[in-house]
Design a protein around this nucleic acid. Structure first.
Length: 650
RNA sequence: CGCGGGGUAGAGCAGUCUGGUAGCUCGUCGGGCUCAUAACCCGGAGGUCAUGUGGUUCAAAUCCCUUCCCCGCAACCA
């Protein structure tokens, strides 16, 4: 019987259409799934969408449709993109699926009944207009940091998961299974930042919005994302607290959860603890993959640098993008995507090395043997050398694949094709072709070449499935289902020699793509500007549009000179300043460390809000606020150097 | 001194665990070849392996220590 292999992606959040970075995760997972199938595993591949939460509720409201209508639309987009890239998932779960909802309610109830989830109160300081809770340390002068209004001490009922109870058990598991969290660096982050300092119980319900799985024994509460979304990995298989399906028994625990580095924490702390509480085994591995950056920046709508999978697939082709992403993305370091790099990689690896090899080999067989692939005779030293090299790289590729280091595996596969190209040069078939006595040798060379190409093509099947199938088709061979399948090709007839991967004319392609992109970027910029304006207008509306002169007079602004300035320890945003305002020397803490060197500020004349209630920042007293401009790029407001210290401003 | 990762040719990276000729891809320069998609094959130039004329060693990119810089996570952000 085949050994099972259960692999998952994180489920995509349906607040908006996924970009190519999100798509990478599915492609990576798909490549691993395809590889494992070819190694004889009975693979189950799960992906899907996370469809609950406040963000979605709001997005739906603003487009005037119901949340369900909204997520139906986005989930459809997600699925379409996954399908475009050939993801071979076995189930596409949606957290709005009935079976999932029922199972999650059961899980929540069970954990509550056994005391691992308890009802407590979310003690917080609540700002009603902002509908937000704040902790005491977040407050500004005891007021809402967003709007500056009074906050009310409120306690909202909420459910909490007892993380602390299972912390030791989880720690032990991580120590005993060094490969549980990979890469290792991510494991260290989790252990040092969360486990060692001690876990606080996690709030796992919300009552401030309704678009979620209802807590079925307490009206008004919905289950928050942790329990809802993470549980998909077991509910998808038919897990329920009242008994599990055969499928679940067979497939769980997962062999690997493939997730982005940003959500490693949820998958290596919260999720295992939920499972421990349920008494279920933990997944064997959590793979935290790096991010795909657009150029040097994180992909984000506000930067206008978002690339989408469906566009890229149209522009370059599915396999080109699959290959690019899988070869570019390392195991730990973030990768980048640019049109230029896609073109370079495609030309170098797919067109020049692989495509050209397949093409020239087929062309020679047509020319010298009328398209019939010849038999091989005895091997000479060149042949032995060729196959030794191929075997070596083949084994290397398998080893890398087994560790899920797909980019490394790809490198080894490419070496196989390079060996074949070199073999052609060494054996010089065009010379052999001129000598009728060398016909048999020429046949051997052609045979060996096809052999080598098809061995490499097998390993390409998980990476570029359609193109790799195309290679088998050219040589008239059925696509192998298992890596160990023997391939017979002697006597097969080659009739067509299509171009597998055409070289891309870089300049032409870029000029076709970039103008469009520029326009897009411009549009996006405009949109962003409009948005910012609207936001500003809104803020103005929120704050009274007119104030009494008396209100303004309440703020005491004073000219001061910076006498001393130094960084606040253990903080990268804060500077501690001593300001001379004539009557006294004030100590002020300001969050401008990113924008100014301490020494550069000494001697500057600035404006101080001198009657601001004192506060402590990072344990350091701050008596006032320095006026600054800007949000992202902050500058202090300077004043002419001949104004005496202590001068009031009105 | 919060924890962790890293600094190797113009760019991007491997090599470090297990010390012993510094390697790969792209670019660049030259040669070969003509089956092929201006492709393929070979060779050259280009590196004091961040720093310290540091320690250990017969031998250090590799192990230990110093200083500087970058990144991730956390914290913090009047």
């Amino acid at each position: 019987m085949k050994e099972k292999f259960y692999i998952t992606t994180a489920i995509a959040y349906t607040s908006k259409k996924p970009h190519i970075g999100n798509t990478y995760e599915v492609i990576l997972t798909d490549a691993i799934a395809r590889y494992k199938r070819m190694r004889g595993y009975d693979v189950y591949f799960l992906t899907g969408t996370d469809e609950h939460g406040q963000k979605i509720q709001e997005a739906a409201e603003s487009s005037g449709i119901t949340p369900k209508e909204y997520v139906d639309k986005v989930a459809g987009e997600v699925k379409a993109i996954w399908d475009t890239f050939g993801a071979t998932y076995d189930r596409f779960i949606r957290t709005t699926d009935d079976d999932h909802v029922a199972a999650v309610q059961g899980i929540f109830r069970k954990l509550y009944e056994q005391g691992d989830i308890y009802k407590g109160s979310y003690e917080g300081l609540y700002c009603t207009p902002c509908e937000s809770f704040w902790t005491p340390s977040q407050l500004v002068d005891g007021k809402c940091p967003e709007c500056g209004r009074e906050v009310i001490k409120t306690s909202e009922e909420a459910y909490f998961l007892r993380l602390s109870k299972y912390a030791d058990q989880l720690m032990k598991h991580i120590e005993e299974n060094p490969d549980f969290i990979v890469p290792e660096m991510r494991k260290n982050e989790m252990v040092n930042n969360f486990l060692k300092p001690g876990l606080q119980d996690l709030c796992v319900s919300r009552s401030s919005f309704s678009w979620g799985v209802p807590v079925d024994f307490d009206n008004g509460h919905v289950i928050y994302v942790w329990v809802d979304a993470l549980s998909n990995y077991i509910t998808a298989l038919g897990y329920t607290v009242d008994g599990c399906s055969e499928k679940y028994k067979k497939l769980w625990p997962a062999d690997v959860h493939v997730v982005g580095k940003d959500i490693v924490r949820f998958h290596t702390i919260y999720w295992p603890i939920i499972l421990l509480a349920l008494g279920e085994p933990l997944p064997k591995k959590v793979l935290g993959h790096p991010w795909l950056l657009s150029g040097t920046d994180k992909m984000s709508k506000s930067r206008g640098n978002v690339l989408y999978g469906d566009d890229l697939a149209k522009q370059f082709g599915v396999d080109v993008i699959r290959y690019y992403l899988l070869s570019e993305m390392g195991f730990t370091d973030d990768g980048t995507i640019t049109y230029e790099n896609i073109i370079k990689t495609t030309n170098a690896d797919l067109a020049n090395v692989l495509g050209n090899l397949v093409n020239r080999t087929a062309a020679m067989i047509k020319q010298y043997f009328g398209g019939v692939i010849p038999e091989a005779s005895e091997k000479n030293s060149d042949d032995v050398e060729l196959f030794e090299q191929i075997d070596k790289y083949f084994a290397k590729a398998l080893a890398s694949f087994d560790e899920y280091k797909v980019a490394d595996a790809l490198k080894s596969v490419l070496e196989i094709f390079k060996c074949c190209n070199k073999y052609i040069d060494v054996t010089t078939p065009w010379v052999l072709a001129k000598d009728p006595e060398m016909k048999e040798r020429l046949g051997s060379v052609m045979h060996n070449l096809v052999d080598g190409i098809l061995r490499g093509a097998k390993l390409m099947l998980p990476i570029i499935p359609e193109s790799a199938k195309g290679i088998f088709k050219i040589y008239g061979v059925d696509v192998p289902e298992d890596l160990s399948d023997d391939i017979c090709f002697s006597g097969n007839v080659i009739d067509e020699v299509p171009i597998l991967f055409a070289r891309i004319d870089e300049k032409k392609m870029l000029s076709e793509l970039m103008p469009k992109e520029d326009k897009k970027a411009e549009k996006k910029e405009k949109k962003a500007e409009e948005k910012a304006q609207k936001k500003a207008e809104k803020k103005e509306e929120e704050a009274p549009s007119e104030i009494e002169i008396g209100d303004f007079m309440k703020v005491k602004l004073t000219v001061g000179e910076i006498l001393e300035c130094e960084k606040v320890e253990k903080s990268d945003k804060l500077l501690k300043l001593i300001v001379d305002i004539e009557t006294e020397k004030r100590q002020v803490v300001s969050g401008i460390a990113k924008f100014y060197e301490p020494n550069a500020l000494i001697g500057k004349k600035i404006v101080l809000v001198s009657n601001l209630k004192p506060a402590k920042l990072r344990g350091v007293d701050s008596n006032g606020m320095i006026l600054c401009s800007g949000e992202e790029d902050v500058r202090i407001v300077e004043i002419a150097s001949d104004v005496p210290n202590g001068t009031g401003i009105r």
